[in-house]
Design a protein around this nucleic acid. Structure first.
Length: 478
RNA sequence: CGAGGUGUAGCGCAGUUGGUAGCGCGCUUGGUUUGGGACCAAGAUGCCGGGGGUUCGAGUCCUCUCACCUCGACCA
């Protein structure tokens, strides 16, 4: 990480205390603040701007793959929530209940949605009659509530923002295709926009979503070697359709159950951005997700012509990037630190000396590399630099993930390696949940996923020694 | 839900044996400054988390309570 001398002591070093480092960034980069509601945070303008970037990029990809946005109620009648047995069992412990409307007790309790499968199903039941009605490809942007006991800004809060896609299809094949298509949308979004490499795979039975036939996941690795589930896509088969009676008349005049999927990502992705790219000076944002890509810092801004030049550059460069001028009356050094904490990819310094030489100073956030660039070259230079930074951040993260991916042939080795250095551990598994439990008990690592790209590292289960069925990535997770 | 910790100015903290509240940062005003968190001067800011007690007197002692943080068990 940044060996450069630390200019400001506002953020705890990540080697000293990773959790504190994380919290410091959340607050110093103005992403979020604590609220007066337990476990709920206030997403501040800068944090919300990042979410809007994420929303914009994802929403475009959803539309490109044929999805439409809708909005469902925030409340679910208790009877509706209970229709699918596994689903309600999975969520019951963490739902918030509304018992009163005004001063009157409700005849039926309402739950504040922890997820909206049941609402979508209830609606699909009404609008799906014929194979001609299928598929239905809906998505909604909303917040959901899960009464979590332990919370952390962005990573786990009682209320959080997300999108949930819910689709209905005629056949099992189409549903499976959709499930994987959306997982791939998430994966390419994470890699291309957030510059976060991911491992794609399937969740084990134990880890899959309550009520799903199969859950697919993208897992990413944080700087401290802990895993973060960054997005999931579920294939429900016809389980919900049977519970809710979603049937359609097919071409062959047979009444058939529909097949469904759901998929979601949350504001947790902002936590991932912090923990994958951040350093001891603060947040580091990949240009494609940064609300501000270039900040112009006038130096000696009281000198005639300096501010004017800064505004002129803003005008010119706003055509090639998202740009801001910091013309507050802070010291330049203060501004440097401030915008580094906020992770702005590129800084442009312009002062009397530069104007005289018809140049500016560009400084890359990721490594503080300094470039002296002629005024004329900025329009061509800046977009190129953005691309370079984007790639460089991805490559750094990928290298880190590779360096922190180990293999283990048995439980002892897994335990030893994970205690030595946290990361992804590849190990063979027989498929038995008892072995999965034992791994967790011994090492507190869980099965992150069964990667699509299976790399056979042995033929025996790491735990029981019986014949192995899958290679699993294990890790301690957020 | 278990274990630990913290609540005093916007933030971080100090506050002795119980005697009526202080420091740093930030904030305001004026001036000098400006290429890595400038300096000087003058200011403003407190239901000491909340309730109840002990006491002539409580930030301080007792008691109850609430909130938040961190780490574990459960989860995106």
């Amino acid at each position: 990480m940044a060996k450069d001398k630390k200019f400001v002591e506002a953020i705890t070093s990540m080697d000293e205390d990773f959790a504190q480092w994380y919290t410091d960034i959340v607050r110093k980069a103005d992403l979020a603040d604590y609220s007066s509601v337990r476990g709920c945070m206030i997403i501040r303008p800068y944090g919300y701007a990042i979410w809007e970037r994420i929303q914009g990029e994802l929403d475009r990809r959803f539309k490109e793959t044929g999805h439409e946005n809708v909005y469902m109620p925030m409340f679910i009648p208790e009877s509706l929530l209970q229709k699918e047995k596994d689903h309600v069992e999975g969520f019951a412990p963490e739902v918030a209940w509304i018992t009163h409307g005004g001063s009157e007790q409700l005849t039926e309790r309402l739950c504040v949605r922890p997820t909206s499968e049941t609402l979508f199903c209830d609606h699909y039941k009404n609008i799906v009659q014929s194979y001609r009605d299928l598929p239905k490809l809906y998505n909604q942007w909303c917040s959901v509530v899960r009464w979590e006991k332990t919370t952390r800004p962005f990573l786990r809060t009682v209320e959080f923002l997300w999108q949930e896609g819910h689709t209905v299809h005629a056949t099992a094949e189409e549903a499976e295709e959709e499930t994987l298509r959306m997982l791939n949308v998430y994966a390419s979004f994470c890699e291309e926009v957030l510059a976060i490499p991911v491992v794609k795979g399937r969740k084990t039975e134990k880890e899959k979503f309550a009520g799903a036939k199969a859950t697919y996941t993208i897992e990413s690795l944080m700087h401290d070697g802990k895993a973060l589930q960054s997005g999931t896509s579920h294939n429900f088969g016809d389980g919900f359709a049977r519970a809710f009676g979603i049937q359609y008349l097919d071409k062959d005049n047979q009444l058939k159950y529909a097949h469904q999927t759901s998929w979601g990502v949350t504001t947790r992705l902002i936590g991932a951005l912090i923990m994958v790219h951040g350093d001891d000076s603060g947040l580091v944002l990949p240009p494609r997700v940064a609300p501000v890509q270039l900040v112009i810092i006038p130096v000696q801004q009281h000198v005639e012509g300096v501010l004017e030049k800064a505004y002129e550059l803003r005008e010119r460069l706003s055509r090639v990037c998202r740009v801001k001028v910091d013309d507050s009356d802070r010291m330049p050094g203060w501004k440097f630190s401030e915008h580094e904490m906020r992770g702005i990819p590129l800084r442009l310094e312009v002062g009397p000396k530069d104007i005289e030489k018809n140049q500016v100073v560009l400084v890359k956030r990721e490594n503080r590399e300094k470039l002296f660039v002629s005024m004329e070259d900025l329009e061509t230079m800046i977009p190129r630099l953005m691309d370079d930074i984007q790639k460089s951040l991805y490559n750094k993260a990928l290298k880190h993930m590779e360096e922190r991916t180990f293999t283990a042939k048995d439980l002892d080795e897994l335990e030893r390696k994970i205690n030595e250095k946290q990361g992804f551990i590849k190990a063979m598994w027989c498929g038995d949940e008892a072995c999965e439990d034992k791994v967790k008990e011994r090492t507190s690592a869980t099965a992150r996923c069964i990667p699509f790209e299976q790399e056979i590292t042995g033929d025996k289960c790491l735990c029981c020694g019986k014949d192995a069925k899958h290679m699993v990535i294990w890790g301690r997770a957020y």
